Computed example of a mutant assay.
Amino acid sequence: MINSVTLVGNLTQDTESKVFQNGSSIAKNTIAVNRKYQLNGEWVSEPTFISLTFNGYLVDKAKALSKGDKVAINGY
């Protein structure tokens, strides 16, 4: 059994990409996910920032994303 996670949030910056001498490339960004919970009967919203790194065919898709875009990321 493999655990998986789905994150839904907004990108905090424009996607940065880098191409290496061997021709491979990566793209990086950060997603802000709001966590909501009750504390003493009142709802609290707290952001969590998660770094993302894309490689392979996902680099071109990630380069089309920019700051503020709402995304859903699924991984394991």
Rank of each mutant, 00 (worst) to 15 (best):
N10P: 06
L58A: 12
N40G: 02
G56P: 00
Y76T: 09
N3G: 11
G41P: 07
G9M: 04
G9C: 04
L39Q: 15
L7D: 00
T30C: 10
V19I: 11
S4A: 10
I73Y: 06
Y37H: 05
V59N: 04
D69Y: 09
V8I: 15
G75I: 00
P47E: 01
M1P: 13
K67C: 00
L11T: 01
N74R: 11
G9T: 08
I73K: 05
W43L: 13
K70H: 07
Q21N: 12
K61R: 13
S66M: 08
T15E: 01
P47T: 02
S24H: 10
D14Q: 10
T30E: 05
K18G: 05
L39Y: 14
D60A: 14
K36P: 02
K28S: 11
G23S: 02
T15A: 03
I26M: 05
N10A: 12
K61L: 15
A27W: 03
G75C: 10
Y37W: 06
G56R: 01
E46Y: 10
Q38C: 10
N3M: 06
S25T: 02
W43Q: 14
Q21V: 07
T30G: 03
T30R: 15
S17C: 07
S4R: 12
T15L: 09
Y37N: 12
W43C: 06
I2A: 11
F20L: 03
T53Q: 13
L39H: 12
S24I: 04
F49L: 11
S25P: 04
S24R: 13
V19E: 05
Q21F: 09
K18F: 13
K28L: 10
K36D: 06
V44Q: 13
N74A: 07
N22D: 00
L58N: 07
A64C: 07
S17P: 07
S24N: 13
V19A: 11
L52E: 02
I2K: 13
K70T: 13
I31W: 10
T53M: 08
D69W: 09
L65K: 14
K61W: 10
T12N: 08
V33Y: 03
L65C: 13
E42D: 00
T12D: 00
F20M: 02
A62R: 01
F20A: 02
S45Y: 05
A32E: 01
A62C: 02
G56M: 01
I26F: 03
G23A: 00
I73Q: 07
G23W: 02
K67H: 03
F20N: 03
P47L: 04
T15M: 06
S4H: 12
A62Y: 08
T48F: 07
I73D: 01
S25E: 13
S25Y: 09
I50V: 08
S45D: 11
A64S: 08
T30P: 05
R35M: 11
N10T: 04
N34Y: 07
L7F: 09
T6N: 09
I2G: 04
N29W: 06
T12S: 06
T53P: 09
E16V: 12
D14P: 05
G68K: 05
K61G: 12
T48E: 15
I31A: 03
L39I: 08
